[in-house]
Design a protein around this nucleic acid. Sequence first.
DNA 1: CTGTTATTGTATCAAAATGAAAAAATAGCG
DNA 2: CGCTATTTTTTCATTTTGATACAATAACAG
Lengths: 262, 262
Amino acid sequence: MGNKVDLDAFADRLSESLPGISVDCVVFGYDSQQLHVLLLKWKYEEAWSLPGGFVHSSESLDDAAHRVLDERTGLRSIFLQQFHTFGALGRAASGHESDYDKMRKILERMPLKGQKWDINWFAKRFVSTAYFALVDMRRARPHPDFLSERCEWVSLEEVPDLILDHRMMLDMALQYLRRQLQYLPIGRSLLPERFTMPELQGLYEAILGHPLVRSNFQRKMLNLGTLIRHEKLMTGAANKAPYLYSFDPVIYERLLEEGIGF
Amino acid sequence: MGNKVDLDAFADRLSESLPGISVDCVVFGYDSQQLHVLLLKWKYEEAWSLPGGFVHSSESLDDAAHRVLDERTGLRSIFLQQFHTFGALGRAASGHESDYDKMRKILERMPLKGQKWDINWFAKRFVSTAYFALVDMRRARPHPDFLSERCEWVSLEEVPDLILDHRMMLDMALQYLRRQLQYLPIGRSLLPERFTMPELQGLYEAILGHPLVRSNFQRKMLNLGTLIRHEKLMTGAANKAPYLYSFDPVIYERLLEEGIGF
DNA sequence: CTGTTATTGTATCAAAATGAAAAAATAGCG
DNA sequence: CGCTATTTTTTCATTTTGATACAATAACAG
């Protein structure tokens, strides 16, 4: 894919997007006892942001979010939920220094002259609907977009300054995720198909940010009735081997709809 | 206020609104054991809708929602919470028959010719952020807007067909309200300053849609620690007089922020 | 003043859920 | 076969919940 092709495609897509509306995705992944979030490092400047994009006139808000996620990770039919729409004035001023200036610098270095659209397209006031996604990190293939130089997983504790109000988005997403955990069998989307109980507990602890009592956690999860127990996982370690579990897809779907007092 | 003045003001406001973005409010009130919702009856046609409006370029999304609510009810600083943004394609086709045709008919009968904007402004694709509000019905003063002929409270069971996807908005708002009830001391906004325990219980039953056991409800509410007991209310009825209660404002605020496992 | 009625406020008791800790099971290894 | 590290199951006291019974009381009738 040559730069010219990218540029043309990018410009074409922009020209058929709704003005003033964007979507941003807080994509959570889980690995080695820690929550991670997918971030983009912009070209030319030390600027980081959540993956986002504009809404084509032929797609719904949800479609746009799914497309953005697909373009950045290659994943489809993912747990993706809208959680808030950010419509404050001066969102560009929410970041540390003048994000507007920084973005302007970046855009000015892009080979965008003479296009059907220009830098001012970005300078307009935007309302952004934010989604959060839960993803099995091992299945995602991070891929930067036209404006960014890298796309990578960052541990929650190592998140750098983010542009605009993206830090607020991340914080609110985490808050929603914690609340959802109370009544949804979240694990399904963040873990591989089969997992051990300690893995599941580690995930819950990473999301909640505090430790849980092992025995009680196990009892609660098993009593939910969504877990199917499979064969043991022989790791070679000198101790009792943990069972592998998976979510019962039927009961899982039912819980997703009804919610459960967890 | 003459019609001409209204029209000019309306046109002016439209011209300085963001294109493609609107807010809609699901305003809940409670009276005589029933939840009510504030609806608008449009001029000229049998069309009902939720109160809504457009977002001025000088105000945030939240500001716009507050303004709409103020304009329709005269109420300020109200419990108002964003709950979802509706961005499906063909939202206009979500209603029963062709809402688009119906709205077009209405707009064509409006004295709008020769304005800076026209009917096509409404025909564009819109993304709408929906809010739900909780209101003490006795303090609200319903007031129709320029496009509508009446603004009134309708019992939840008597809600007529609504235009666009407003029925879906209402249903989702109710769903969110029920969920919020689990961990927020909702009553504060929907009841007068002082209320009796049976009134509070009636409200909870109206929201949840099923009866609750009196003694257990009372125990739970009192144990929350948010209620202050005042003098008894002498109704003149031949039975034990109920106490009046109010919410402790300090504890109430704390609960609003933290939420409680209720 | 006393008994009756309707309703509100409290207490009781069994069942279920929760928190904390102990006990049992077991994979590998010396 | 014991030993260690870890997972899984039990146990038990405490708290919460659901259901029901009981106590309090405002008006009224006699």
